[in-house]
Design a protein around this nucleic acid. Sequence first.
DNA 1: ATAGGGTTAG
Length: 622
Amino acid sequence: MQMGVGCVALVRISATPRKGILLLDSMHPSFLLWLGFYNSMDNNLLSPNSISKSLSTTPARSGRYVKGFDKLNDAVFLFNRMIHMKPLPLLFEFNKLLGDIVKMKHYSTAISLINKLWLLRISVDAYMMNIAINCFSHLRRIDLGFAMFGCIVKCGHEPLVSTYNTLLKGLVLEDRIFEAEVLFKKLIRERICEPNEVTYGTLMNGLCKAGNTNMAIRLLAYMEEKGCKPSKEGYSTIIDGLCKDRMVDDALTLLAEMIGKRVFPNVVTYNSLIYGLCNLGRWEDAKQMLREMDIRKINPDMHTYNILMDAFCKEGMIEDAESVFCIMIEKGEQPDVVSYSALIDGYCLRGQMKEATAVFNTMIDKNIEPNIITLNSLINGHCKRSNIDEAMKLFKEIARKKLEPTVSTYSTILYGLFKVGRSKDALELFEHMQSIGLTPNFITYSVLLDGLCKNHQVDKALSLFRIIIKNGIHPNVAMYTVLIDGSCKNGKLDTAMDLFCELYSRGLHPNIVTYNAMINGFCNKGLIEEAKEVVIKMEKNGVFPNSVTYNIILQGILRWKKPKDVLSHLKEMDARGFSIDASSFYLLLHMIPAKEQDSNFADLIQKLVPNDVLKSKFQPAK
DNA sequence: ATAGGGTTAG
């Protein structure tokens, strides 16, 4: 745990006699310089004349405050006037103004203004300290927050619980949950302060974010034991964690429990539940939540509408999402970048790039700045349609818009490049993403393995697979399936069989796709009997062959010219209700000599070939 | 009086 940094020790700070008020020694021009803030910010967010700069920039994560430009301008202007008023306005006036600026998410501006007070040797109180620490947290610089904390301690002031809460929140925002836990335990063990419901709530949120909802639930029980009554925020945190873990019924139970204890849910609580229910496709239950909100006179907000729009779009129900879009406007909520992004993603998932682009243009017309997620969706849509040029155009647009590409951006582009066979470019991009400090994740690796296999670079995929495992990634069935399929299609049946065994030893279970890949491997080698044995084995394991399975075997029989097996296989397909796909039909036409096509065959084929295959000009699928 | 906890999009 870094409690303050070295440079703080060099700072001489003197306190005014009044408790809770800090005054810095005038020898130092700026606390930001002491804290190394100017030097350590790479993106120039805070250069010495940052106030004017931050006036001309909008916060990176939201386009919502573009309209707040004048408000920010006013706030900064007022602040600067207040500084020179005599007598000086009360600190709480400054704090209120700073609070407004923080609400507008102009964190570096707020820090600069506090710094200005500091420079003028105007005393700063604990509230203002909390504001500053909070701003550092949002800028992902909790190290500087701790440095500031060091200042407070240094001049002999007792930090408040809220100060610790703010520090905890900063750690949570940087995913440093372990350190947050350490700090929390230290507070209790050394009796530094009595945690309040905010302290517990912050830590519970951190635990949920780290995937440890169970521990968060235990903490909820613990705080009650200690006589600290959980607030609606505390309950909502756990409910949200449970919903994200898809344990929505447990979340609903907790909702009943909190109401039983007369802690009443608000719109945030319901938003989490609606998200969780929609995510499981429990539309009726989600509707019930909306009805309950209505009864409790809780109005849906922006998040509610966005959650619903997103859920509909993911289900391909864009028309319903558009209805929600209209309703929210009717109810006086302006759709924001999330609303538009949800719609864009919905169209992209359906491959309707014209429509997606139209929505994109609309949002730009409405002065709503697209963010990286919006662009990622569009890039994904173009990649899915194999339109890598359009995808690349947007990829370049990211830098032009001064946005930061994410790991997902790269994963998506990698997918697109592999899809059109540009594996060399993909591998270069993979190197590039790492060189700019982005760590590939599970999805990146999955895309890479799939791309390499589909582009006949199975050996590369296999050696990468070993590296991935060494790096601590736990492969799933899909990864194994990709490699098994790739191995089989490249004639490496032995490798495929080894992978198949390995998958079992990891406690994973092959699915229908895995089995089909293996069956295909045997068929490609002419080992039709072995392929059929796999079918028996998979049925024993509770995975049942599908139409693809039977067509793979049929094609194996046809390729390896075993006409005697054809009829019996077709009869089995008929018995099981499977039909002949286009590839099989193509092979049937070309490989069965005319004299073999007796009436028996003709009838069966007639029966097993669906009309759409007959009409498809008999082109093979591949 | 002013600060600090929970919700949405790839």
